[in-house]
Design a binder for these strands. Structure first.
Lengths: 224, 224
DNA sequence: TATTTATGATAGTATTACTATTATTTAAAA
DNA sequence: TTTTAAATAATAGTAATACTATCATAAATA
């Protein structure tokens, strides 16, 4: 038996579960590829269908619209990060070491994980940097939230918040600091590569400087 | 003579300068209104034209497309914040007091400023919270950057970075911290109102808790 | 007064974001 | 094994969006 990591997805995100068919998996795979290559604005179901070798109507049978598809893949990433977080901090006792792992996990462009066949985690990380906030920065965020679309993100911030509280139980802003780490791990990366004068990192360098910045920010914030 | 605050805009953002005509001013005014009310995705030049009482073609004579119009109004905000920053910190010597002013300025939903007739700064602040990052989170950020569209944002982060360095000349990440303050002042506000469990602030409260969080974050970060 | 310039009115195109229909293939149930 | 159901492919069509083009008219300027 082949072991494949399955991230549990919110069924309201799709019409037909893309994990359950080849076409479905292809939709996810090629969506990630296309959004990574050309950005979400340029992404259309027609282009996606062409790239897979199916028709537009075929894609619409899986996803209502391209926004839900974006939320689906970003949701998948949130779930995957949650899994990695649990896995990587599993046997660690020192919360400071745990928090460092988290910062590194969020900031680092991971290599593609073989246990998830149709998802390229490296491209997905890039998508989160450029498109991640578009999942919630919409007019219908309230509706989407009612449908629990952002639950995996909340769970993640809760988990990170718990580690922060383990480091310092008196720290007042564990959730805000968690969402700040998550968002800034991505945004400082975007700035580093595209608008470097908004950062103190040299363009096209690797993520180690961002990690140092975030560690400095976080550990100074939570020390008593 | 009536004194009106004029923010110097990058001419590449527009085809015809909207400050120079009634129609132009109306385009800005109604754009802010419509984007504020319905979000940028739902915003079209047709709706804008209808709301002004002109035609689509009329709007296209001023702006090439809706993205440039968005960058225009966000650019205007960056310039306005820069002006407010200079004005409000003008005679202050203590850099810590200055930095507190900056945090408050970025976090607070200002009242509409009478010196800028056709711009509602309060709505503009809301637009920055929900749409601000869409100005640069595009596929063509490189092109836009070459045309200096983000210069006012860079100038702003430089100015804030300078204040940070006044507080602690040895602090290593003045620009990153500046962009973090700017972005988080907006994003934590968005989260507070729409996804409150990503923060430690209670929904619909005013911005004072965000200010406290940011002050805590910043001053712990830069203390020696 | 002549002439440039801005606006208004109208038309038209390519693309996007869908919905609907029917035929065909594949897979599951009887 | 046949029947039936479900998934997909192929095609068509619509409303809205994001533009471009043209021409007449009004207002400002030379």
């Amino acid at each position: 038996m082949k072991l494949e990591l399955q991230i549990k997805m919110n069924p309201s995100l799709y019409i037909r579960d893309p994990e359950q068919s080849e076409l479905g998996k292809n939709i996810i795979k090629h969506s990630i590829q296309l959004i990574h290559d050309n950005g979400f604005e340029a992404f259309t179901f027609k282009k996606l269908a062409e790239s897979i070798g199916t028709t537009e109507a075929g894609v619409y049978r899986y996803f209502e619209n391209k926004h839900k598809l974006l939320v689906y893949i970003i949701s998948w990433y949130w779930g995957w990060i949650q899994f990695q977080l649990n896995y990587q901090t599993n046997n660690i006792k020192d919360p400071i070491v745990k928090l460092k792992k988290v910062i590194k996990l969020l900031s680092t462009n991971v290599e593609d994980d073989i246990t998830t066949g149709h998802v390229d985690e490296s491209q997905l990380h890039q998508i989160l940097i450029s498109e991640g906030s578009k999942a919630y920065l919409t007019n219908h965020v309230g509706k989407d939230n009612k449908q629990q679309f952002f639950q995996p993100y909340k769970d993640l911030c809760n988990a990170i918040g718990d580690i922060i509280l383990e480091c310092n139980p008196k720290y007042k802003y564990p959730h805000s600091l968690a969402s700040t780490i998550f968002e800034m791990a991505h945004l400082q990366n975007f700035f580093m590569n595209h608008l470097p004068s908004l950062t103190d990192f040299s363009k096209s360098k690797n993520e180690s400087e961002i990690i140092k910045y975030l560690e400095d920010l976080v550990f100074k914030s939570i020390r008593e």
